[in-house]
Design a protein around this nucleic acid. Sequence first.
DNA 1: ATATAACACGAACATACGTTCTGTGTCAAG
DNA 2: CTTGACACAGAACGTATGTTCGTGTTATAT
Lengths: 243, 243
Amino acid sequence: MVRTRRGLTERHHNILNYLDKRLSERGYPPSIREIGEATGISSTSVVTYYLKQLVEFGLIERDPKFSRAVRLIKEPELSVPQRVAEAVQNAVVVADELLSIPLIGRIFASAPVPVPPSDFNYFDAESSINIARSLLPSREKGIELFALEVQGDSMIDAMVNDGDIVVMKKAEQANNGEMVAVWLTGKDETTLKYFFKEKGRVRLQPANPTMKPIYVNDPQTVQVQGKVVMVIRKVDRIQSTAA
Amino acid sequence: MVRTRRGLTERHHNILNYLDKRLSERGYPPSIREIGEATGISSTSVVTYYLKQLVEFGLIERDPKFSRAVRLIKEPELSVPQRVAEAVQNAVVVADELLSIPLIGRIFASAPVPVPPSDFNYFDAESSINIARSLLPSREKGIELFALEVQGDSMIDAMVNDGDIVVMKKAEQANNGEMVAVWLTGKDETTLKYFFKEKGRVRLQPANPTMKPIYVNDPQTVQVQGKVVMVIRKVDRIQSTAA
DNA sequence: ATATAACACGAACATACGTTCTGTGTCAAG
DNA sequence: CTTGACACAGAACGTATGTTCGTGTTATAT
């Protein structure tokens, strides 16, 4: 008869305690050699021998061959009452629904759209607006959006008022039917229109259905700068009275 | 003078996010190469370049030459009640910012506005939209708002498109300059206009500044049904092509 | 146009690291 | 006394890993 394996020994406990303490202290686990140094085991193969047993006991996990890839398996944390858990989950859903979009400037007819530079930090903008993600168009993922405030009456053919907020994303090309902000180099003018490319020319279709489209025979002069995904209008009272 | 360093760039943020996520997922930090793979940086020396800057910004610490020896610098640990309170407070702020508004139907020109009945339960509507409270006009408290979806082109003089969502509140009287939904009994028509009362008659001023107002000599036929506080337009692509 | 810091990259290199291999000692059970 | 499990050890090895070096590009102020 041969002798059978016992349970955990002092060396097992020493290793477990060191793993726990070490992660708290240094923010990253020890190497095999560091475990050996800390627990008085002079050989890396003995450390590996004990780690293998701790894996078998279900006390640690390892990712083989990666350095420092040892982690303690903790008991599931004490569960919270179900309502608190549900409330926390709901808070997560709410936080995800709210989308912060940088408000980076104004759009007006006589200048190109101030699109963000390629290294723009969308998370750290000086000014931003919040919108609900569910109000985005259905295929819009909400990534790298920016907002501009409309200045002047020049966008009314796009059904966009002075003071409205236009939510956009950068684009240099457009598909048919998308609303775009284009800079017309032939006119030195920015306009918001539905974009159609047909028979070598560009048709820019106003949102106002009673207005006629613009046809641009030289597509090179139509510089797509962004796509409009949303328009928001705060309706305050106006002060002016009509003549 | 030469260009000066900006603050954190997208790559910095990507690295920080990856470090945080990775430690939670795997129980040990990534190697330099793993950070590069996860953030699209193909060279270990560029990863080291960014990690050096994150150390300088005081956001991470490293133990030089040790493998996987990167740790995020976190705020000093709060007690559990403090951490819970802080998280709950943040959740309250976010939840308060997000306002759920019942979407109760449609508005179109040939019918009165379907205003909610006086016993309407705003919290239990069948359908609703979410908006961010900060987008409301400055004096609007967000109480007893409802939303209607615009059907048809009859509101274009109000700069409101078919498909737009109009956020309103009930009202039976209006102050000068407010945008209202009125049912004109003399015309059997609903319209959205800025409301002015002057010399015994009502002037209804379109939002489109190129259009003329309507004058109604008999104020009794102007039934104010609600005030408009916000207009939201999801801008999807359109399919129709012009003649 | 120029200068220069920031940004980016790949290669080379030395060391860290975990695994495997081989060997030895102890001890309980038959 | 023999056997086999257990414990331990050092060496060798291949790969993982972080740093250094040299080069190139870009943005920006002057």
